[in-house]
């Protein structure tokens, strides 16, 4: 899973910004950060339009930031 890293101070982000919240830098590079380490997850059974009817939703550590992602539900 990719993260964005500020070219000025190295601050890592999951979501794109125009300006780094730490150093106000405006240049970022995208890099692969591996798989997130799940902090918490749970089964969602009322889902937004455009998504399947249930899935495990998770928040995990990704590099030095957080990620929100769907986990595969074991069959």
């Amino acid at each position: 899973m990719n993260i964005l890293k500020c070219d000025g101070c190295g601050h890592e982000m999951f979501e794109r910004r125009a300006v780094c919240p730490e150093c106000r830098g405006e240049s970022f590079s995208e890099s692969e950060a591996g798989e997130p380490q799940t902090i918490v997850s749970s089964l969602l059974t009322v889902t937004p339009e455009g998504f399947e009817d249930s899935y495990d939703l998770a928040v995990g550590k990704l590099g030095r930031t957080l990620a929100i992602y769907r986990k595969a539900v074991p069959k």
Binding site: F14, L44, G50, L57, I68, Y69, R70
Partner: peptide, 27 residues
């Protein structure tokens, strides 16, 4: 549809994971 519209306040990549606001409360 209501769930999708309400969750539209999240970031683009966060939204792509399919959370709803109640789902965040569940976590």
């Amino acid at each position: 549809e209501v769930t999708r519209v309400i969750s539209s306040l999240l970031g683009e990549r966060e939204k792509a994971a399919g959370p709803s606001l109640p789902s965040l409360a569940g976590l």
